[in-house]
Design a protein around this nucleic acid. Structure first.
Lengths: 229, 229
DNA sequence: GTTCAAAACCATACGTCGTATGATTTTGTA
DNA sequence: TACAAAATCATACGACGTATGGTTTTGAAC
């Protein structure tokens, strides 16, 4: 079944080649997007430029948005790796998360133009699943990271253990998603602030504080008068 | 620039007639959807059946999804009105909200088939706004209701006043949105439970409870062994 | 090496959405 | 009655995404 004979190369070549051309096509597409704008570039064009038939292109990327998603996902993976070191320097969970959110907001701002198709793609997933196939793998990257952070915070007693870390990650993602959506509609609003507020809300909750409440609430993290280090 | 009111705003009758045919078209469309399924019904067909040119149909509903949205929005308005009485019988904010969420979950389950295009529409809004026009008016109905409830709860000291009611409504909506999306992917999960959990999380927050915390946390509202009715 | 079935690929046509065009009709108002 | 704005119409079109049916690669088995 799985033990390969020493006759020739492992069977993974086909798959590697596939991922290779996938990456190739995505790169070409992104180059075109950068030059002419997402809307202006047609799938036909990408196929021609990539020297494949349109049908083949679609076999790799079932919708146009998937091309954007592929590229952005790669960027996210890269970015997260690059941030790992700095993340580790932050001592508390809240501080780590706030740092990550600031970075994330900046990244969103930089990629603004691609967010509409990207978000559309992430939902296209859920839609397609209606008809059968596809597991997500889209935003899983960031979701995994968030889950890990929440889980660690639970073990460090910074976050309540009652709620599964997965659900917390998931909840935060949707709050952030809402912030992004709002920000796309009103570009002049402060995305970073919105991210931090969403996080603070998730941590503190909305219930009125009773007098005897001993919890120290998490601020929105904006440069605060007190504590200038 | 072009503001002021230089010419004439659409006058009473014209506007009424427009809304009338809009409703007419939406009804026809929905009937067809019910009979043949959303995907199977083409815009061309709807136009023919409604005895208008395709371009005219599009002038009323800029995307196919808008037809679904129109109908569902009407249903929501109706439903909310019908629920108003029962809502008032609940004494506390938490109880009111939980009641509403249960109803909402049931409604979502009933309309399951239409949710994908409906959600797509709500986002198409944000997308279209990129290019210029449209203010939402889509989910505003339910958003208004939530905002009002939160504001009342703030005045009754059941919810912290630090966060604007609008933002709370907005946050809850996105948490619920996440729950719905997840449920669409995994239909066997319990949407009602997910709604209630989302709400509980929003109220209680995720931060670890310090020993001296006097806040009584909101349960998920599921029929709980202890304290039954 | 020859054979074979699966897969990847190709060219092309097609259905549908949504937009654009330019002419024609309706409607409110001057 | 005149006229400009809005609504409607018929039609063509560009682009997305699917379907079809045939051709080439490819991995492996004989």
């Amino acid at each position: 079944m799985k033990d390969a004979k020493p006759t020739s190369e492992p069977t993974g070549r086909r798959q590697r080649k596939r991922q290779q051309t996938a990456s190739h096509l995505a790169t070409i597409a992104f180059t075109l997007f950068e030059e002419y704008g997402y809307e202006a570039v047609t799938m036909e064009r990408i196929a021609v430029e990539g020297d494949v038939a349109k049908a083949t292109l679609y076999s790799y990327f079932p919708m146009k948005e998937a091309l954007v998603a592929h590229h952005l996902r790669d960027e996210i993976v890269e970015g997260m790796a690059a941030l790992a070191d700095q993340l580790a320097t932050h001592r508390s969970f809240v501080s780590r998360m706030q740092f990550l959110l600031r970075e994330s907001a900046a990244w969103h701002a930089a990629k603004r133009a691609y967010l509409p198709p990207y978000l559309r793609y992430l939902h296209g997933i859920a839609d397609s699943a209606e008809n059968g196939a596809i597991q997500d793998a889209g935003s899983t990257v960031t979701w995994n990271a968030l889950t890990a952070m929440f889980r660690a915070a639970q073990q460090g007693s910074e976050v309540a253990r009652a709620i599964p870390a997965e659900q917390l990650a998931w909840s935060l993602q949707y709050l952030l998603y809402g912030a992004v959506t709002h920000w796309l509609l009103y570009p002049d609003t402060d995305l970073t602030a919105a991210f931090l507020q969403a996080f603070a809300l998730l941590m503190n909750g909305a219930a009125a504080n009773k007098p005897g409440d001993a919890r120290k609430s998490i601020s929105t993290g904006k440069t605060n008068p007190r504590r200038s280090r």
